[in-house]
């Protein structure tokens, strides 16, 4: 299944519980239509990862996720030989090997015969596919999420280039594998470091910022069905006001959603300074941030 147009993306993503801006919808449509990866940047918690999940849900595709970190290498991202299994098999078929080389007259002859059987050990049976190999050999086109690609090493980034432009990978023992179905690829970055020009050139770039007030309100209402409109409005205004403070970690959309959810379960109908103090751990994840919010409660409430 593919998207038929920008409006189609808007409708489908919304039915998958993700409310995109028109810009996001356009980029998703283009990525789908041209089979190019999307590189998503933006502050933490604005829904970069969620976008990939929503695309998978709306298209009914499987989501394959690769979380990047320093030291991630091909063995964990692409494939690994199952050495233990290979060794076990060699032990079990030892007698068979003797049969194979039984008639050989010279050492070279025996080696040749074994070499002819090499494929038996370097075959699909002994390969353990990791997310990237899984994504390109899948029968149905999946959504591949390469999360926090900025945390990976430059070597891994270079390795990704082949995959992202040609959708193929090379396994020395087996040869080049082309993608059965081209996956929908989403890369996310938190701007820990700058990505190389070569990688950027292969992607469509998307910057997701904190949403407009109306959009954020819609998101909070969508994720918390049954919330009173007035409370949702207050939650969003308060979160937006706190976001303007100079904090170590600014509350993002997911904090707004969680906060609203906890207010509902506490059966609170309106936000007062006491309520904020009581539920502050839902909004601030650092003690210093909590202190700062406590100190500026008065100004926050006068602003809202």
């Amino acid at each position: 299944m593919k998207f038929t147009g920008v409006d189609d993306v808007l409708i489908k993503l919304e039915s998958a519980h993700y409310i995109p801006s028109r810009e996001i919808a356009t980029v998703v449509f283009l990525a789908d239509a041209t089979s190019k990866p999307i590189l998503v940047e933006g502050p933490a918690g604005v829904g970069k990862t969620e976008l990939a999940k929503a695309v998978a849900r709306s298209l009914g595709r499987e989501l394959i996720r690769l979380q990047c970190y320093e030291g991630l290498d091909e063995a964990k991202a692409l494939y690994e030989w199952e050495y233990a299994k290979q060794l076990l098999y060699t032990q079990m078929v030892k007698d068979k090997i003797n049969d194979v080389i039984a008639g050989a007259e010279t050492l070279a002859g025996a080696v040749d015969r074994i070499a002819a059987q090499e494929d038996a050990f370097f075959s699909e049976r002994f390969i353990q596919p990791r997310p990237l190999l899984k994504a390109i050999s899948s029968d149905k086109p999946p959504v591949l999420l390469i999360d926090e690609v900025d945390k990976s090493d430059p070597e891994f980034e270079a390795f990704l280039l082949e995959l992202l432009s040609d959708f193929q990978v090379t396994i020395p023992e087996l040869g080049t594998r082309k993608a059965v179905n081209i996956p929908f690829v989403v890369l996310t970055s938190n701007n820990y470091r700058d990505m190389s020009d070569a990688l950027k050139r292969r992607c469509i770039h998307l910057y997701i910022d904190y949403p407009e007030r109306e959009l954020e309100l819609r998101i909070v209402m969508l994720k918390n069905p049954g919330i009173h409109g007035r409370l949702a409005g207050q939650v969003v205004d308060m979160i937006r006001a706190i976001r303007n403070l100079d904090l170590k970690k600014k509350p993002c959309i997911s904090e707004a959603i969680d906060w609203a959810r906890s207010l509902i379960s506490l059966r609170i109908e309106g936000i007062t300074p006491e309520v904020v103090l009581q539920t502050l751990p839902m909004i601030c994840k650092y003690r210093a941030d909590s202190e700062k919010v406590k100190k500026s409660l008065d100004t926050l409430f006068s602003r809202v």
Binding site: V6, T34, E41, D197, H205
Partner: peptide, 29 residues
């Protein structure tokens, strides 16, 4: 890439037109 993508969207909608340009020409924040 940009030219190919412009064919796919409705360029009379400025959001779409601008998004195509920005996502191809400005590849970082």
């Amino acid at each position: 890439d940009c030219l190919a993508q412009l064919d796919l969207v409705d360029i009379s909608d400025e959001v779409q037109f601008k998004t195509v340009l920005s996502s191809n020409f400005a590849k970082s924040r």
